[in-house]
Design a binder for these strands. Structure first.
Length: 629
DNA sequence: CACAGAGGCGCCCTCTGCTGGAGGTAC
DNA sequence: AGTACCTCCAGCAGAGGGCGCCTCTGTG
């Protein structure tokens, strides 16, 4: 706005000023610029329709005269609201361009039409505008004429008044409002006040529109207004209770005992924000808001905390900070649980955890969040965005907490571990300890039975510990002899010695074997044309043996020192000392055991009562052949 | 008009807990 | 070799704390 003076500031000079009624009714001129009369028909229309009327006005810049003109609303008869009770002061004074005498209050910027107004469509009314109120070189203002039961937003949006401009309160003197009262307006005994809003119209138009709001001032002894009264309220209505008036906004439930508050309030229904930040061009409704905003640019923080070195732009921020950090006052308490918060919004957010309300719906999946922040975080799962990067290894993460955990676990040597209170297991993360507790130490209603004994357990950890007690014992005992072993498959193979069962049959020569491994070896030796017998040669005397065990027996006689060296090798230690007459058990199904599994266990089992049948037993030679492979 | 007070909204953060894949180990 | 199991680890969501910025109202 090119205004040299804030219109609202100008208007402040006259707001709440008691305006005098009076002056002769002015005869309207044809198409008149100085017409003061309003046709009676218009007044009747006013009473019947009680709808918003707009008045066009043009400005004669030189003389600073506003020329008012009724503007027909598009869908109905046009009428001139409220003007019927307003009287125009002495036309001469109204049209006088010279300001009032020094020190005198400025002229009212509104029309005053007295008695039977004769307002018609296109009727123009002229009146002067005090320089303090309106400067023609400024951007044209809006005048709002608001009246009872008006519909603020007209069908023609172009004519809809912008409620963000200046305003003034006009007050009827006794008797002036009779006409309107008789037409179904305010009740007898009520004071009539009109609020005039003055705001700029569209740019480039040499017109202004006045809006006058009727103000209902109720007497003290009147009962409180019913809900219906509220619903049918005026655009602006006051209720007098004793000496206290209540001003009500017609656009929202707002009421105030002070007209200034109402006047200020009405601006919130406007988009007009005349105060612009010179740094970011953002606009604000009031100077205070602008100042606070500018402080955010400049870093000015006038409100300093007395308990710490924090400082804030607004007092509200300081109060809130003190509650969070120093006083711990939490005025907002949950009615369902004992949660309390410093801020109402936090309580509102908390209540959603009770209600399950999830107002923030993801547009890409079925997820819905209880607050906007969670939804924003969730959206990273769709976008793949990982804004948090590890400064050490450059790994990226979707959440800051995940990054923090990563750094602690991967790059922090002093990270604390979590020890299980039940089993002393040390686990890196608390959450994983919880998983451990749940899996290992939680009570299970279903008993887990031990495979080797009648014991049963409700806790998995106890069960596992019990199982370990069976680990080193030869828990598989032969029912026919004293043989015992640790593994079931060994026992199965052993029992066949007693039962004579030989389930593995050579299809070529019909020879039967107790173990599959023996059948396999048989097939290789006797039915494989590519089979080459292994020669085991004594390094001392170069004598060859077909069987490795025979070689070992030979070595004991030929070179006792070589035998000593052999015993130093752990893997050789086990088997060379085994008497070649002993057999080594094979797997339960006769499968060959891997070299790594051919450990002392097999040896012990074999010595514990194994078969001496070399033809069917797995010889040491066979084992070493397997290892060579 | 300035200021205090109250409050809304958004953003960022931490703490917490669950889940499932990866990798190692025991059987 | 296959399987079961366990811990590690990243991903993800729930809940809540704290603050920045802004808006609006009551009051002097």
């Amino acid at each position: 706005m090119a205004a040299t003076k804030d219109p609202s500031e100008q208007f402040t000079q006259i707001k709440e000023q008691k305006l005098k009624l009076g002056g002769p009714q002015e005869e309207e001129g044809e198409g008149g610029v100085q017409g003061g009369q309003i046709q009676e028909g218009a007044v009747e229309a006013l009473a019947e329709n009680k709808q918003l009327e707009l008045l066009w006005a043009s400005v004669e810049s030189d003389s600073q005269i506003l020329t008012l003109q009724t503007v027909p609303l598009p869908s109905q008869e046009v009428h001139m609201p409220g003007l019927g009770w307003l009287s125009v002061p002495d036309p001469e004074s109204l049209q006088a361009t010279e300001p009032q005498a020094e020190g005198a209050p400025p002229l009212p910027s509104v029309l005053w039409l007295n008695q039977e107004p004769q307002c018609s469509i296109q009727q123009n009314v002229a009146f002067s505008v005090p320089e303090e109120l309106y400067l023609p070189e400024e951007e044209l203002p809006w005048f709002h004429l608001l009246r009872e039961n008006m519909t603020v937003v007209g069908e023609d949006q172009a004519l809809t008044p912008n409620l963000g401009g200046s305003s003034a309160l006009m007050k009827f003197e006794e008797g002036q409002e009779n006409q309107w009262l008789s037409e179904g307006g305010l009740n007898q005994g009520e004071e009539c006040c009109f609020l005039v809003e003055m705001m700029p119209r569209d740019e480039g138009k040499e017109d202004v529109v006045l809006a006058i709001s009727s103000v209902n001032v109720e007497e003290q002894d009147k009962p409180a207004p019913s809900q219906a009264d509220v619903e049918n309220t005026d655009a602006v209505k006051t209720q007098r209770k004793g000496t206290i008036r209540t001003f009500r906004c017609d656009l929202c439930p707002f009421t105030s005992s002070k007209y200034s508050s109402l006047s200020r309030h009405i601006k919130i229904h406007s988009d007009k924000k005349p105060h612009m930040c010179h740094l970011c061009l953002k606009t604000f409704r009031t100077v205070t808001l602008l100042r606070n905003h500018v402080n955010t640019h400049t870093g000015t923080r006038p409100y300093k905390c007395g308990n710490c070195n924090m400082a804030f732009v607004t007092n509200g921020e300081l109060v809130r900070h003190r509650r969070y950090k120093h006083t711990y006052e939490k005025p907002f308490k949950c009615s369902i649980c004992n949660y309390a918060s410093v801020e109402a919004s936090k309580l509102k957010r908390h209540v959603r955890s009770h209600t399950g309300e999830r107002p923030f719906q993801c547009c890409l999946c079925s997820y819905a969040s209880k607050d906007a922040c969670k939804l924003k975080r969730h959206m990273r799962t769709h976008s793949g965005e990982k804004p948090y990067q590890c400064s050490v290894c450059s790994a990226r993460f979707t959440q800051s907490g995940t990054l923090k955990m990563h750094v602690a676990q991967k790059h922090d040597e002093n990270v604390s571990k979590y020890t299980c209170p039940h089993c002393a297991a040390v686990i890196a993360r608390k959450s994983d300890l919880r998983v451990h507790l749940r899996k290992m130490h939680s009570y299970s209603p279903v008993e887990t039975k031990c495979r080797y004994c009648p014991a049963s357990f409700h806790e998995r950890f106890a069960f596992i510990q019990h199982q370990k007690t069976h680990k080193d014992e030869k828990k598989f005992k032969c029912q026919y002899c004293d043989y015992a072993c640790k593994q079931k498959h060994c026992m199965v193979a052993h029992v066949r010695i007693h039962t004579g069962e030989k389930p593995f049959v050579c299809v070529t020569c019909d020879k039967h074997f107790r173990q599959k491994q023996l059948l396999t070896e048989h097939l290789r030796k006797f039915h494989d044309p590519n089979f080459v017998p292994t020669e085991h040669q004594c390094l001392k005397c170069s004598r060859s043996f077909s069987r490795w065990t025979n070689l070992q027996r030979h070595k004991k006689k030929c070179d006792p020192e070589q035998q000593k060296l052999a015993t130093s090798n752990k893997t050789v230690l086990i088997w060379p000392i085994v008497d070649s007459s002993q057999k080594v058990s094979e797997g339960p199904g006769g499968e060959a055991q891997l070299p790594g599994e051919l450990t002392l266990g097999h040896h012990e089992e074999s010595t514990g009562g194994g078969s001496k049948d070399l033809d069917e037993g797995l010889t040491c030679e066979m084992i070493f052949n397997m290892m060579d492979k």
